[in-house]
């Protein structure tokens, strides 16, 4: 009950944000939402299915280009249908790429996805006829920051609902089984290839939506702005901050990340990416299960449990080499 009230309050507050802040500040909120969207996507393949995908930025870029090109095409596809088409195109491409790449394990999978993203950046820069090369394409102007905010908010809320539904579906169960033990999962009758490809395709669709929104808001799409490794890093770190493999982890992580990022940005502009690096290291070493896990433990403390340094050192104790 308390939870439902909390949710209602948060949602109401989020709906009111555009009336409370300046259009410029609203941009920050929209980028947090876009990051949440990307993180929600990464969470499906990286969090639930346990595959360390390092190339999801490819689908952000593909989403941006597809949305833009459809809007600029001679059919002048409106933004929303173009965005959905972009999600579909991304998902299809992810399926085609996923079938060979998802056979790989561990480091090989991670680097192969990293390579896929690099390859797409290069294709976007070189395919002049379609993408206008390194110069990029210009989208129709729409300077209504509220519009982008609400679209992004709707998609993030949709993402939460979808993730929550998936978590309780056979698909979600199958993903988790694959993450925990792929051989055992196979033996239980799970067709792991189909499940993994589904996770990869869905995660691509989420990333494409984020890419489409950013593209339309920025009105310009160029290879180096969209196929940049920072996006991949940010979506993963948002998931880790919040908690991978949870419904609320990615949006919470994205919000916290954006908050920290804005603070660091305004105080130590130059050190911004350095702080990102430190943040990653701290979370990976001390809180690999993220803030959601920390909240759960704190709730347990509130109910009379013990809260010690163990919360932060458990990971190190379990995984260091004597």
């Amino acid at each position: 009950m308390a939870r439902a009230v909390l949710l209602a309050v948060v949602l109401a507050a989020l709906l009111l944000v555009p009336s409370l802040v300046s259009p410029y500040t609203l941009l920050t909120y929209t980028s947090a939402l876009c990051l949440a969207l990307m993180a929600q996507g990464w969470n499906l393949i990286g969090g639930y299915t346990g595959y360390a995908a390092f190339g999801n930025v490819a689908f952000v870029g593909i989403g941006a280009y597809t949305t833009g090109l459809l809007m600029l095409s001679r059919w002048h596809v409106p933004f929303v249908p173009a965005l959905f088409a972009a999600a579909l195109v991304s998902a299809l491409l992810a399926t085609v790429i996923g079938i060979p790449v998802l056979r790989l394990k561990g480091h090989y999978f991670a680097i192969a996805t990293l390579g896929v993203a690099e390859a797409f950046r290069e294709i976007a820069s070189a395919w002049d006829d379609l993408t206008n090369g390194a110069t990029g394409i210009d989208l129709p102007v729409r300077s209504d920051s509220r519009f982008f905010y609400y679209v992004a908010l709707a998609l993030v809320v949709g993402g939460i609902v979808i993730t929550a539904r998936l978590e309780r579906s056979k698909l979600g169960y199958g993903w988790v089984a694959i993450r925990e033990d792929q051989d055992a999962a196979r033996m239980l009758g799970i067709d792991t290839t189909v499940f993994k490809v589904a996770a990869f395709a869905l995660s691509a669709a989420f990333a494409a939506c984020a890419g489409g929104i950013i593209a339309y808001q920025d009105i310009h799409v160029a290879p180096d702005d969209f196929f940049k490794i920072e996006y991949t890093l940010q979506m993963i770190i948002a998931c880790i901050i919040g908690g991978t493999g949870t419904v609320w982890g990615p949006p919470v992580g994205a919000a916290v990340y954006q908050l920290l990022s804005t603070y660091v940005w305004s105080h130590f502009l130059e050190l911004h990416p350095t702080v990102l690096g430190v943040l990653i290291i701290l979370f990976v070493v001390f809180l690999p299960r993220g803030l959601m896990d920390l909240f759960r433990r704190m709730a347990a403390v509130a109910r009379g449990g013990r809260f010690g340094s163990d919360v932060f050192l458990a990971n190190v104790r379990a995984s260091r080499l004597e």
Binding site: Y173, V176, A177, E180, D181, D183, A184, A185, L188, I190
Partner: peptide, 15 residues
């Protein structure tokens, strides 16, 4: 080879 992070019920429900 249990699915370590899942509950006992969910482990068995997978089957």
């Amino acid at each position: 080879r249990p699915l370590t992070h899942l509950t006992v019920r969910d482990n068995v429900a997978m089957g």
